[in-house]
Design a protein around this nucleic acid. Structure first.
Length: 567
RNA sequence: CGGGACGUGGCGCAGUUUGGCAGCGCGCAGCGUUCGGGACGCUGAGGUCGUCGGUUCAAAUCCGACCGUCCCGACCA
């Protein structure tokens, strides 16, 4: 590629609308342009990176026996109706009506559609199968943001495994886990596999691959011992708290104006871990009292997972008053009968606590949880905090902001069942195959690499992803020697299979250097009359900023070796 | 969906308070001088000021509605 012929529209200024580093730099360095919120046009340089990402994924998917498909992105609504997800997906699914009046949807994912193909898997002899594709997904995100990190239209590699039984699924799942580890490793991304919520659609296990980044939206808890979990699932051990062996009966006391745990701490001098936090939720239209230790925060996803419905919301104030007779701030579960009361285990066996009295401006002291509260279920509900002891080893855990790059999922039989897939087993009995589903966001991987690999001068791609591995920056392309030598090196590197771009533009050197750094090409060769007069060209590595002179005669071999060593 | 900010040549912005010829920098085109870290001179092209409506002799500027974009939150199999 010759830069003079390439469409790489770099900008001198940062685009004003972009905040996240990847968003800002991918626009500024000429990789993409926005069409509307959440929809980006990828320009040729980005396409080259995307292609490399897809090649890595494809190679690793094929290596575990995956077969590539391409399924439609427009689906009849009926298929989604059949699986029960048409309503469930709600506004996040794009829907349209064709000229015949048929309802059509744009695919957010392809479990249903792959399953329609799987109806022809009629014998156990056909199993296991691992099927995948790269296809555009459409999701009507309420708030697209951060460039390619959260969009409404994106390419996903999604794969699906079909096995006869659970142990087969486990094996397919493990193969994907290993393949994903290799894929992200090859991309130069440190992806941490974390235990994740399976979500309200069920399933028996799920692992997300997360990359640490401030631009991320998900928090994970990790420990030096290897423990790693999405905050939605993370637990920790808690130091024991000394309670009196016995407390007198509960006793109301006035707490005028107290609305928060902090208020109560200030008023009574008792620490927050001696308070009970009482929240009211509505789950499937029925009220639920949720109890946590005063210094703990509710992780709503744990509640959703624990009670097995997505229809969960905080109760409105009027509902609370009707249910308990008091406003938030004075709520409690002492003496509450006939209601579902879910409590976090941190409260189990605790004594000498305080809680609201279900009378405005009154609280109760001397609460003994086991004695005074009719807890109907104990459920891990609290959000862990950094520094708490690891559940596995006791060392303090850390919390990090991350980007979710991949998600692997033991789906179960819900799609094969609802869409009628059966195979005959060895005994001639009809069996429903069990599925796994596995996704990687392609453009999100690209943007994540940009988040990880950049500096004040621009992007700095790892060799495996770089749109071009080498740029030949020609000083004075009109000079016969510089022009001729750079053309020769360009031809020889191309011949050697190196992705090389020849910057033959009639620009001043400073402009070319700045563009090479902004675009993020790993290796730069500077070929100019001055160096050539001494028989040398300069080799600069983008990642380290290191520069060294190389004899003209050695440069091709040296660059080929360097590129190969970093691919 | 709630809160905030914004919308003026390709990009970054000023002008809006107080209505009166649509500007600046970068970029772009031509010519010339330059050329190892974002050069300089001359000439030039390019804008229905987000859209629609209203007020006014006159609207980028005032009023109203709508659309769009970004950020925070809610949401996110």
């Amino acid at each position: 590629m010759r830069w003079s012929q390439a469409h790489i529209p770099t900008l001198r200024d940062d685009p004003s609308e972009a905040e996240a580093a990847s968003h800002r730099l991918l626009i500024r360095a000429g990789y993409m342009r926005q069409l509307m919120a959440g929809h980006y046009s990828l320009l040729p340089a980005a396409m080259r990176i995307r292609e490399k990402i897809m090649r890595i994924i494809r190679e690793e998917m094929n290596a575990i026996g995956g077969q590539e498909f391409l399924l439609p992105t427009m689906h009849p609504a009926e298929v989604w109706q059949a699986s029960g997800r048409l309503d469930y997906m709600g506004d996040e699914m794009f829907r349209l009506v064709d000229r015949k009046g048929s309802e059509v949807v744009l695919g957010m994912t392809h479990e249903e559609i792959f399953t329609t193909v799987a109806t022809e898997l009629v014998s156990y002899k056909r199993l296991p199968q691992t099927w995948y594709q790269f296809q555009t997904k459409f999701r009507d995100e309420p708030r697209p943001k951060s460039g390619l990190l959260r969009v409404r239209e994106f390419t996903m590699k999604d794969s699906y495994s079909f096995d006869l039984d659970e142990s087969g699924l486990d094996a397919s799942f493990d193969r994907h886990h290993d393949a994903y580890a290799r894929i992200f490793e090859r991309m130069g991304l440190e992806a941490i596999p974390v235990d994740a919520s399976v979500g309200a659609m069920g399933g028996t296990g799920s692992i997300e691959f997360m990359v640490r980044s401030d631009a991320g939206e998900d928090w994970i808890a990790t420990c030096s011992c290897g423990y790693a979990a999405n905050l939605e699932r993370a637990t920790s051990t808690l130091p024991a708290i000394e309670d009196p062996a016995e407390v007198p009966g509960t006793e109301p006391f006035p707490t005028p104006g107290v609305r928060t745990i902090a208020d109560l701490v200030e008023l009574t001098g008792l620490p927050a871990d001696r308070q009970v936090k009482t929240l009211v939720y509505i789950a499937d239209d029925a009220p639920v009292l949720v109890l946590l230790r005063g210094d703990h925060d509710l992780m709503e996803q744990k509640l959703i997972d624990g009670i097995g419905t997505g229809q969960v919301r905080p109760a409105h104030e009027e509902e609370i008053v009707e249910l308990l007779g008091a406003h938030p701030g004075s709520l409690g579960a002492v003496g509450v009968a006939g209601q579902r009361i879910i409590a976090d285990p941190a409260l189990q066996g605790r004594r000498d606590l305080m809680t609201g009295a279900n009378e405005d401006d009154v609280h109760l002291r001397n609460v003994d949880v086991d004695r005074d509260i009719a807890v109907s279920e104990w459920m891990d509900l609290r959000s862990v905090a950094a520094g708490e002891p690891c559940i596995e080893c006791g060392a303090p855990i850390s919390l990090d902001k991350t980007i979710e790059l991949g998600h692997i999922f033991k789906l179960g039989r819900m799609y094969t069942e609802s869409l009628g897939v059966t195979v005959l087993d060895e005994d001639g009995k009809a069996r429903v195959p069990i599925m796994g589903s596995y996704g990687i966001g392609v453009e999100r991987a690209l943007a994540t690499a940009a988040e990880v690999y950049h500096d004040e001068h621009g992007l700095a791609w790892p060799m495996a992803l770089a749109p071009w591995e080498v740029v030949i920056t020609v000083i004075r392309p009109d000079d016969a020697l510089a022009g001729g030598e750079s053309e020769r090196i360009y031809a020889e590197l191309t011949e050697a299979g190196i992705d090389v771009i020849l910057d033959d533009r009639a620009e001043r050197p400073g402009v070319k250097f700045a563009d090479a750094e902004l675009v993020g090409i790993p290796v730069r060769l500077t070929v100019g009359p001055r160096g050539l007069a001494d028989g040398i060209v300069e080799l600069a590595e983008r990642a380290t900023g290191e520069k060294r002179d190389v004899a003209v005669a050695d440069v091709v071999r040296e660059v080929v070796d360097l590129v190969h060593s970093q691919r």
